[in-house]
Every structure is written in structure tokens, then in C-alpha cells.
């Protein structure tokens, strides 16, 4: 098991290197010339152009630039946002809207990415709370009422909830809960995770993975419905509620728990639509802003960071699966 873990960890390095190479190549051939972005109007001055190009290290060959970039990334220096150089880029690269002032405080890519991730993580936390309560409850209900109208309704509505993209559900919820039934007065922006503004976006974010949880919980419970230990629990006079909670749910939760990791990485990397609609300065919003403004260093930082989250969580899920289920062996 230990050897296996080490081997899997080692296999991550070449994957991340290639991911870095692809990202860097795209950025290198991208449409935005960083020198021009830094210089603004001045870029036509050839001497000045060459000077800045040299200062940024962009006059070196591609391979050297890439190796340099890779070394710096592994060393923890993810580079600088274009906005740190002043010029036109800064006006466009700095965040927009309410509560987006965070991006102005630092221009180091790592600080920006990690700082914005905090907001996305808080949002994802609430989404996970919604999922862990409502989705599991619905799954249990569907399983207990297996093959009845309640079961079909729950499963079908979870399919609907998870199929419709956030940028459709988001506006619909806005129109319903702000215009038609004014539950919320202020929407959009970010005011900390305990403000009312966080509720709607977290709900929208939770819609996506809902189906997976409902289905897995339902399947897990259905599997143990007729098992001996459940019958024994009933036979000794245990109330049905406790049979479900103590015996069935506990066994059924193993696949759900292992998939929680994947769901978390899905939330952290997939929050960009919710953030875009509700104007939340999270990591997804940062990615879109910097992609559109041509601040490639930051965008690449986000992509690489999210890739790291994805591969790490995939690995952890595999390992956890083995740890929880003694039937899985590695050799």
C-alpha cells in the first residue's frame, strides 16, 4: 500500500509537467503580447519595446523560458500579474464590481489565486452542507419508498436539477426569489460566508452534484434493504428510523464519502458560472477575468492550480477507496 502510494505520487509529476507545458505553450502563442500590454501606448517605441522584452525575459528561446517557468512554479514563485507592471493591462486586469477589491491588494499570481480560492472554498463549503443534508435525505427517502411515485419524483427532479446549467438555474432563482417573492433584497458580490448573499449562490452550486449523491445514497440503501443485519435490527424492535440511520445509512455512506472528494474538486473547479452570475470574486471569476483581459500569467496559475487539485483528489479518492474497502487490493 505504501509503495503503491509512492508510485502513484511519483506518476503525478510527469503529468503535471506536461500539463504545464501545454498551458505554457498556449500562453506563449496566445493573442496577447505581454510587452504591449505592459507598455500600453508606448509600445511602438522600438528601443523601449526591446528593453521591456528583455526585462521580462521574453527575448530568450521558448525552451529556456519554459524551463525557467517550470522551475519557478515548482519553487513556489508563480510569477506576477500584468497589473503589477502598470499600463493599460492594470485597468482591465483589476476586478470589477462590488467586493472585488481583493485583487487590487496583491499582484503576485500565487497570492491572487490562493486568496480567491478562499472565497470559492467558503462557497463550496455551503454547497457541501446543502448536499450532505438535503441530497442524502432525498436519497434515503427515494430508497425507502423504492419504486413508488415519491421515488420517481425524487430521482427525476434530481436529474433535472443536475442537468440544467448554473447559468440557467441562477437567473431563474434570482427572478423567483428577488423579483416575484422578494426574499432577498441584495444579491451579487461577496460579503463573507455568513452573509445572506452567500445563500443563493451556494444553492445553485449544490444543484450540479445533487444527482450523484441522491443516486449513490439510494443505491446504497436499496442494496442493504433486505440484508440480514437490517432484519436483525428490526427484529430486536428497533424503530425504523433508527434502523435506517444507524445501520443502513452507515453502510451506504461509503461510496458517497469516497465520491465527496471528487465532488469537492468539481465544486472548486466548476464554480466559475455561479461566480460569474452572482459576481463573486472567487477563483473561477478570476480565471475568466484574466483570460479575457489577457493576463495570462494569472490565468495559467489558476489552470495549473486547479489541475493540481484535480489530480490530487483523484489520487486520494483511489487510495481512500482502497482504505475503506478491504476487497480492493493493489499490486
Amino acid at each position: 500500500m505504501f509503495l503503491y502510494t509512492v508510485r502513484r505520487l511519483a506518476a503525478l509529476v510527469p503529468i503535471m509537467v506536461v500539463v504545464m507545458l501545454i498551458t505554457f505553450t498556449l500562453g506563449y502563442y496566445g493573442p496577447i503580447d505581454p510587452v504591449r500590454a505592459v507598455l500600453g501606448e508606448e509600445w511602438e517605441d522600438e528601443a523601449r519595446y526591446a528593453e521591456v522584452k528583455k526585462a521580462l525575459g521574453l527575448d530568450r528561446p521558448f525552451v529556456i523560458q519554459f524551463l525557467d517557468y517550470m522551475g519557478a512554479m515548482f519553487g513556489g514563485n508563480w510569477g506576477q500579474s500584468l497589473s503589477s507592471f502598470g499600463g493599460v493591462a492594470s485597468d482591465r486586469a483589476v476586478g470589477e464590481g462590488r467586493g472585488a477589491g481583493f485583487s487590487g491588494t496583491s499582484t503576485g499570481v500565487r497570492e491572487m489565486v490562493v486568496g480567491r480560492l478562499g472565497i470559492t472554498a467558503q462557497l463550496s463549503f455551503w454547497a457541501l452542507v446543502f448536499l450532505a443534508t438535503f441530497a442524502i435525505l432525498l436519497g434515503v427517502l427515494a430508497a425507502v419508498k423504492q419504486n413508488t411515485a415519491i421515488d420517481y419524483t425524487i430521482v427525476t427532479s434530481s436529474i433535472i436539477a443536475s442537468s440544467i446549467p448554473a447559468y440557467v438555474i441562477g437567473p431563474v432563482l434570482l427572478i423567483v426569489f428577488v423579483l416575484k417573492i422578494p426574499v432577498f433584497k441584495t444579491v451579487g458580490g461577496w460579503d463573507g460566508m455568513f452573509s445572506r448573499q452567500a445563500i443563493l449562490p451556494a444553492i445553485v452550486l449544490a444543484f450540479g452534484p445533487m444527482l450523484v449523491i441522491v443516486r449513490q445514497t439510494r443505491a446504497g440503501i436499496v442494496e442493504v434493504l433486505g440484508k440480514d443485519f437490517v432484519r436483525t435490527a428490526r427484529a430486536k424492535g428497533m424503530p425504523e428510523r433508527l434502523v435506517v440511520a444507524r445501520h443502513m445509512l452507515r453502510t451506504a455512506m461509503i461510496p458517497v464519502l469516497t465520491s465527496m472528494g471528487l465532488i469537492t474538486s468539481g465544486l472548486l473547479t466548476g464554480s466559475l458560472f455561479v461566480e460569474q452570475i452572482f459576481n463573486i470574486p472567487g477563483i473561477g471569476k478570476l480565471a475568466i477575468q484574466t483570460l479575457l483581459s489577457g493576463d495570462h500569467a494569472v490565468f495559467m496559475g489558476v489552470v495549473l492550480f486547479q489541475s493540481l487539485i484535480i489530480v490530487t483528489v483523484n489520487l486520494l479518492t483511489d487510495l481512500l477507496y482502497g482504505g475503506l474497502d478491504p476487497r480492493v487490493t493493489y499490486n
Binding site: 503529468i15 503535471m16 496566445g30 489552470v303 486547479q306
Partner: peptide, 19 residues
């Protein structure tokens, strides 16, 4: 396949299409 899966898919597609 592993490498493609390692990327956040929408961001990669967005990057490719911009470039």
C-alpha cells in the same frame, strides 16, 4: 487521456479557443 483529464475542462477549452 490522463493529461487531458487533469485539466479543468471548461478553462482548457476556453484557453484553446481564445488562442
Amino acid at each position: 487521456a490522463d493529461i487531458t483529464m487533469a485539466f479543468p475542462d471548461i478553462l482548457l477549452a476556453a484557453f484553446i479557443s481564445v488562442v
